[in-house]
Amino acid sequence: MSFSVKKEGEVVVVDVEGQLIVGNRQELKQKVLDELERGEKKFLIDFSQTGYIDSSGLGVLVSLSKKIREQGGELRLANLNDDLKTLFELTKLDTLFQIADTRERALQSF
């Protein structure tokens, strides 16, 4: 489980590799908050290499979404596989987040 953070143009892109669950959610939160403190405003979290997400992981995404918005920023999600899409639909979080099918589309949407 790890998170890689890189800059693509003006967008901070975070790849979630493995699971996003109770044991590592704080690491993701801190990485994004560090970038937000540095003044970054546009964030994309890419789930193409993600296994599963639990309720704690979903909670961190909700929390980050709020904090980014409070700072005048934007958060996009991309590359949810069918099982992750089902998870977002079950929790109706697909209505809370802007979700793109691909990384490219997400980057273009800012």
């Binding site: 639990d54 309720s55 704690s56 979903l58 909670g59 961190v60 909700v62 929390s63 709020k66 998870l87 079950l90 929790t91 109706k92 979080l93 209505t95 809370l96």
Partner: peptide
Amino acid sequence: PTTPENLGREDGRGLFLMRK
């Protein structure tokens, strides 16, 4: 956790997901 007033909560989805 899917109602409009709860959708923005950070917690409260664990048991809901277990049941679903």
